[in-house]
Simulated assay, not measured.
Amino acid sequence: MKVKHILILAFILIVAGKSFSQQQIVYKQIDSIKLVMELHRPESMDFNKEYPAMVFFFGGGWNKGTIKQFEPHAKYFSKRGMVCFLVDYRVRERHHTTPIESLKDAKSAIRYIKEHASEFQIDTSKIVASGASAGGQLAAATALISDYNETSDDVSINCKPNALVLFNPAIDNGPAGVGYNKIGDAYKNFSPLHNIEKGAPPTILFLGTNDYLIPVETVKYYQTVMQKVGSTCELHLYEGKKHGFFNYNKFENYRDTIIHTDNFLVSLGYLDPESKVKIE
């Protein structure tokens, strides 16, 4: 093993203090608040190779939530050959913050990952942002929203991901959407639906037709606007399913959305179609 690679491995292990394949890393500190991301790596990695990455943001209305929500997804996609990150961010119940701070943290997380891409062995042209509900809004906003950057961030590092995987995302934050009561007129520069432009990354979107927060008409309109600007937006509707239908505890739905996501990432050239693994 080359000296450079030994040093990289030592850096990761020292920072994380955990097993090689799963670690927690502090990516940001605001006063006494330390924000972490949990890293899930493929068990066997070629130190001369770069890997695609997937960054997950939990749901919870920008009020609460846990990185454990997407742990099954991270375990699956790390087995498929991706470096996966479960990102903690500031929420109202724990940090007395607004959705604006949540978005700043999401952007900081992706910038941190890109800044340390060589240590993580990441191909920065193949970074996928994913999330559910408010976390889906954050994932989409890192790609579409130019405002709300942390003053301590190096904004020369582009925080935009290359693809999006969104589960019942709160993509409309306008007066008729989700979160307007928290951000008011800031929605004009916060809401993904209101800021879709040419160059928006390819997206796959999942929604249950009985979702009490996200109307089917909203995601269909989002898809229409994405297509108008020339971007891929693959939409999967689940008849009669409610908000959070895709979580691991609803295994058949979880499995189906994993299959569609896997096929989507294969279509982008991020995953090897011949290296499928069991969904469990």
Results as ranks from 00 to 15, higher is better:
residue 2 K to P: 05
residue 2 K to N: 07
residue 4 K to G: 00
residue 5 H to N: 14
residue 5 H to V: 02
residue 5 H to D: 11
residue 7 L to S: 12
residue 12 I to F: 11
residue 13 L to I: 03
residue 18 K to N: 13
residue 20 F to S: 00
residue 23 Q to W: 11
residue 23 Q to R: 15
residue 25 I to M: 08
residue 25 I to Y: 09
residue 27 Y to W: 09
residue 27 Y to A: 06
residue 34 K to W: 06
residue 37 M to H: 06
residue 38 E to R: 14
residue 40 H to F: 12
residue 46 D to N: 11
residue 48 N to F: 03
residue 49 K to T: 09
residue 49 K to V: 02
residue 50 E to R: 06
residue 50 E to K: 12
residue 50 E to Y: 11
residue 53 A to R: 02
residue 54 M to H: 01
residue 55 V to L: 12
residue 55 V to C: 12
residue 64 K to A: 03
residue 65 G to R: 01
residue 66 T to W: 09
residue 67 I to P: 00
residue 67 I to N: 00
residue 67 I to H: 01
residue 69 Q to R: 15
residue 69 Q to A: 11
residue 72 P to N: 13
residue 73 H to D: 15
residue 73 H to E: 10
residue 73 H to V: 13
residue 74 A to F: 09
residue 78 S to P: 04
residue 79 K to C: 00
residue 80 R to C: 12
residue 82 M to N: 02
residue 83 V to Q: 04
residue 87 V to N: 03
residue 88 D to Y: 10
residue 90 R to W: 11
residue 93 E to G: 01
residue 93 E to R: 04
residue 96 H to R: 09
residue 98 T to R: 03
residue 104 K to L: 04
residue 105 D to L: 12
residue 111 R to A: 05
residue 112 Y to K: 13
residue 114 K to I: 06
residue 118 S to F: 10
residue 118 S to D: 14
residue 119 E to Q: 08
residue 121 Q to S: 15
residue 121 Q to N: 12
residue 121 Q to Y: 13
residue 123 D to S: 08
residue 126 K to Y: 13
residue 133 S to Y: 10
residue 134 A to V: 01
residue 142 T to I: 05
residue 145 I to M: 00
residue 145 I to S: 00
residue 146 S to E: 05
residue 147 D to S: 15
residue 147 D to F: 14
residue 150 E to W: 08
residue 152 S to H: 10
residue 155 V to S: 12
residue 157 I to L: 10
residue 158 N to Y: 07
residue 160 K to E: 00
residue 160 K to F: 00
residue 160 K to H: 07
residue 161 P to S: 07
residue 165 V to H: 07
residue 168 N to R: 01
residue 168 N to T: 08
residue 170 A to K: 07
residue 171 I to R: 03
residue 173 N to A: 06
residue 173 N to Y: 05
residue 178 V to F: 01
residue 180 Y to W: 05
residue 182 K to L: 15
residue 184 G to V: 03
residue 185 D to H: 10
residue 187 Y to Q: 05
residue 189 N to F: 02
residue 191 S to Y: 01
residue 194 H to R: 10
residue 195 N to F: 05
residue 198 K to A: 15
residue 199 G to M: 10
residue 205 L to F: 06
residue 207 L to N: 08
residue 207 L to K: 10
residue 211 D to Q: 01
residue 218 T to V: 14
residue 219 V to Y: 13
residue 221 Y to I: 03
residue 224 T to K: 15
residue 226 M to Y: 03
residue 227 Q to S: 04
residue 228 K to F: 07
residue 229 V to N: 11
residue 230 G to T: 13
residue 231 S to D: 08
residue 231 S to R: 03
residue 232 T to I: 12
residue 235 L to M: 04
residue 235 L to F: 07
residue 241 K to Y: 04
residue 242 K to F: 11
residue 247 N to I: 15
residue 248 Y to F: 10
residue 249 N to M: 13
residue 254 Y to I: 13
residue 255 R to A: 15
residue 258 I to L: 12
residue 258 I to W: 01
residue 260 H to K: 15
residue 260 H to D: 07
residue 261 T to E: 02
residue 262 D to M: 02
residue 262 D to T: 07
residue 264 F to C: 04
residue 267 S to N: 12
residue 267 S to L: 02
residue 269 G to H: 06
residue 275 S to H: 14
residue 277 V to D: 04
